[in-house]
Lab assay of single mutants.
Amino acid sequence: MAAGGDHGSPDSYRSPLASRYASPEMCFVFSDRYKFRTWRQLWLWLAEAEQTLGLPITDEQIQEMKSNLENIDFKMAAEEEKRLRHDVMAHVHTFGHCCPKAAGIIHLGATSCYVGDNTDLIILRNALDLLLPKLARVISRLADFAKERASLPTLGFTHFQPAQLTTVGKRCCLWIQDLCMDLQNLKRVRDDLRFRGVKGTTGTQASFLQLFEGDDHKVEQLDKMVTEKAGFKRAFIITGQTYTRKVDIEVLSVLASLGASVHKICTDIRLLANLKEMEEPFEKQQIGSSAMPYKRNPMRSERCCSLARHLMTLVMDPLQTASVQWFERTLDDSANRRICLAEAFLTADTILNTLQNISEGLVVYPKVIERRIRQELPFMATENIIMAMVKAGGSRQDCHEKIRVLSQQAASVVKQEGGDNDLIERIQVDAYFSPIHSQLDHLLDPSSFTGRASQQVQRFLEEEVYPLLKPYESVMKVKAELCL
């Protein structure tokens, strides 16, 4: 049975990233139509530049190519590739079939990587351009969430054990800070992308030097003109047959890092959902379990974690691919890159769409948070109580021993009897502590235990987050809708 299948058929496997999760716009960027249309555009740009620099290419040939950029006979191309065992030459023939007058000058002087690699770089750039505003929107939604809850005390956790208090907004800023680093890295790697350009079979530009009869300047002009037509500021000066596969490492490393950030955020949300302090959106008709109707599973956060793990592992592909590119190139890269580049971007696209949807509907339960604080705060307040007693004339050592005994009794009630923490009640009825009984409410005010959390939130948002989001103001209103 021949390899390949009808990918629109229910009898043929289709990647869930495309069929179930990723956005239509990201799927289109990695589609065959987008790819092969870009090949034709690159052939047109090459012909236009070659004509401008004096090669015998007519206006009629150029116009014929322009008129057929979208006229792609995919069936013919597939048949040609089956016959020739070469995808680029299959599309040269297919393009030439609908451009008979231009057929002889299509791909003039070029090698397969002229269309293959340059198209990949265009796709990487455009895919990054799709991700950047999506990530900015996630940051914006979380920034709104953090600002609104900047002063809401909550129990902090280290080692997932109760620690000092923080605020809900401050905790959210930990998430935002990681995503801001990801946004900066995505922008950097996007701006650092260079075009492969017009380089020939081993990167020496020998074929173009021959076409222009040894004119170095025209060869350099050709490279520059096509690079500018493709919208790049610069091209690699040095290439082998391909652009260095280190570029793929750079791009997928940034995406993998984004995956790590999203995994951490969504894990926190899942843990908070278990504590009943916070939940992701839950639709009115949504079913959490087929057997347990009360369940409210954090399905979206779980999906993000599941896909983020996949995204983090994909960076190993370009690392290994770059390491086995012998001399000017081997074909070890080809099949692998067809999979890992598309999957990385479709996965990143999915987790950003999902995280935006989550961040637009996060639900906080202040009463649950308050109750958990009441359970733990008495123990945390013991040092403040000791200091207040010393100020009232008591002995630190005597007070410490009193607190120690009462704390152990209260802990026994919590752990052995399943009761509430009654340390404060014990202190309130103990005559030894009568000098500070009137101060206990103040000493137990949760806001006095959150330090500068709310001020940190305000400063972080104003100095770091809002300036970073400013270039994306025009796209901030787009909502994230999930079908599944």
Score class of each variant (00 low, 15 high):
residue 413 V to T: 13
residue 118 N to C: 10
residue 251 V to P: 02
residue 382 T to F: 04
residue 417 E to F: 12
residue 168 V to R: 01
residue 124 L to T: 14
residue 391 K to S: 12
residue 137 R to N: 14
residue 47 A to L: 04
residue 475 V to M: 15
residue 432 Y to I: 07
residue 413 V to P: 01
residue 37 R to I: 13
residue 156 G to S: 12
residue 301 S to T: 14
residue 298 P to A: 13
residue 236 F to Q: 05
residue 397 Q to H: 04
residue 461 L to V: 13
residue 176 I to Q: 04
residue 478 V to R: 15
residue 317 D to A: 07
residue 225 M to L: 13
residue 204 T to N: 10
residue 421 N to E: 03
residue 153 P to Y: 04
residue 483 C to D: 14
residue 289 S to G: 01
residue 91 H to E: 09
residue 224 K to E: 15
residue 354 T to K: 03
residue 24 P to A: 09
residue 327 F to E: 08
residue 406 L to V: 09
residue 263 H to K: 02
residue 9 S to M: 14
residue 339 I to W: 01
residue 373 I to P: 00
residue 303 R to V: 02
residue 458 Q to G: 12
residue 235 A to Y: 15
residue 220 E to G: 08
residue 303 R to A: 03
residue 475 V to A: 14
residue 114 Y to F: 10
residue 43 W to A: 00
residue 440 L to Q: 07
residue 101 K to Y: 11
residue 131 L to G: 05
residue 365 Y to D: 04
residue 130 L to M: 13
residue 259 G to L: 07
residue 146 A to Y: 00
residue 259 G to A: 12
residue 416 Q to I: 10
residue 484 L to T: 15
residue 23 S to V: 05
residue 185 N to M: 09
residue 356 Q to K: 03
residue 70 E to S: 11
residue 336 N to A: 13
residue 108 L to P: 00
residue 439 Q to F: 05
residue 395 S to E: 05
residue 325 Q to M: 12
residue 147 K to G: 10
residue 233 K to W: 07
residue 198 V to Y: 08
residue 52 T to P: 04
residue 45 W to Q: 11
residue 27 C to T: 14
residue 238 I to V: 13
residue 200 G to Q: 08
residue 224 K to D: 14
residue 475 V to L: 14
residue 289 S to A: 03
residue 336 N to V: 13
residue 238 I to W: 00
residue 465 V to G: 03
residue 141 R to D: 04
residue 363 V to Q: 03
residue 350 T to E: 15
residue 462 E to R: 12
residue 254 V to P: 08
residue 417 E to N: 12
residue 261 S to A: 11
residue 306 S to C: 02
residue 108 L to H: 07
residue 291 A to S: 05
residue 104 G to V: 11
residue 391 K to R: 15
residue 341 L to Y: 12
residue 389 M to W: 04
residue 431 A to S: 15
residue 154 T to E: 05
residue 440 L to A: 06
residue 210 Q to D: 10
residue 345 F to P: 03
residue 212 F to V: 09
residue 177 Q to H: 15
residue 73 D to M: 04
residue 131 L to W: 02
residue 416 Q to F: 14
residue 226 V to L: 15
residue 287 I to A: 07
residue 204 T to A: 09
residue 458 Q to I: 07
residue 129 D to G: 11
residue 26 M to G: 00
residue 175 W to E: 05
residue 202 T to H: 02
residue 251 V to S: 08
residue 301 S to R: 02
residue 62 I to R: 04
residue 318 P to L: 01
residue 106 I to N: 02
residue 60 E to I: 12
residue 136 A to G: 12
residue 318 P to A: 08
residue 79 E to S: 10
residue 41 Q to Y: 14
residue 288 G to I: 05
residue 237 I to G: 09
